[in-house]
Write a protein that binds this DNA or RNA. Sequence first.
DNA 1: CAAGACCTATCTATCATTAGAAAGGCAAAT
DNA 2: ATTTGCCTTTCTAATGATAGATAGGTCTTG
Lengths: 185, 185
Amino acid sequence: MAKQQEGTVDKIIKTTQKRMREAGFHGVSFRDIAADVGIKSASVHHHFPTKEDLGVAVTDAYTEQFLEALGDPDDPTRKPDELLKLYVANFRRALVKDKRMCLCGVLASEKSSLPNGVAKSDQAFFEKNIAWLEAVLRRKSPRMSPKNRYAEAVRIIATLEGAMLVASGLGDTATFDLTTATLFK
Amino acid sequence: MAKQQEGTVDKIIKTTQKRMREAGFHGVSFRDIAADVGIKSASVHHHFPTKEDLGVAVTDAYTEQFLEALGDPDDPTRKPDELLKLYVANFRRALVKDKRMCLCGVLASEKSSLPNGVAKSDQAFFEKNIAWLEAVLRRKSPRMSPKNRYAEAVRIIATLEGAMLVASGLGDTATFDLTTATLFK
DNA sequence: CAAGACCTATCTATCATTAGAAAGGCAAAT
DNA sequence: ATTTGCCTTTCTAATGATAGATAGGTCTTG
């Protein structure tokens, strides 16, 4: 049976993302992924020869999907404050709806043990998020210095990642709202 | 040769902590730990029969050591503001000096895949930290409501864990200072 | 028929875990 | 003081399960 399942690659990426957000890079195996998708592990290797390849693909897809949901930070039809609220809502959804940490947060916590390519893709997630936030802040507070803008952008993403982490550690997603309530003021 | 090495258990715990902070629970093996300590993996099992046992011991030891470094939050000879600065410094040291994430932050990010005992010990770390912060805040701002005190305590630890995570993701420890600079005001 | 997707089958390495033996320390019994 | 025996620690050796990865075949589609 060699049906070229239209979405096998997508299924693999989606399943891997889910599992890696639960167990980290080292807590996921080709066999588990294959079983979820309904194929054999050799078939996963056909699409992603090495685990590093798979990790990079999953991380990049996650980043792309995340940024796509945010949209253009310079879109003149949306106010900076709305965009920042959207940003928080995006993280909130990842935690409350998916019941899972941010993939790139999980990977960041085990970064020094990741294959090079995965570590690089993970870093790109943070850099792109910071760039998006800086763009919004440039519109919101044009007089803020670039240095302070960068610091504020980092502070926002750090607070959100931290809120997810602690909510996860406490096993209580309500903690996220408690933490992020005072993010902007 | 059956020399009862005085500190074998301590060495195992220390080595495991170091490795788990780099690679997470699933990224660590009995063999690696044994090799670091200079014994065989069977000997590690003698002290910690299962990986869950080892994980619990390491997490509890980390928590105890962490809280010990903080000291009594109600010590009248130390001002609340000093204690909060000490708290930040404690996290900073973990990141900058050890060049590693907080152990319990790493474990929190893969919590849903942890053995029950480890997940429980990890949660205890956060609860005890929050209790310590609440105690300090009770002295610093006696008129603050218990609910707000809790929220503020969670916000503090979340910001610190998030700052570590993002600093790790960016591969730049300076990010930690940038993020935590405006923690109190 | 050529290419892509998936398979069976297998490899080697590593995983956590266990059984059983050797070796040394310690203390009661001699 | 020496012997006896237990306790702890560590070892060798092996278990079955699982890891990532590969070779080569089969089927389907274009």
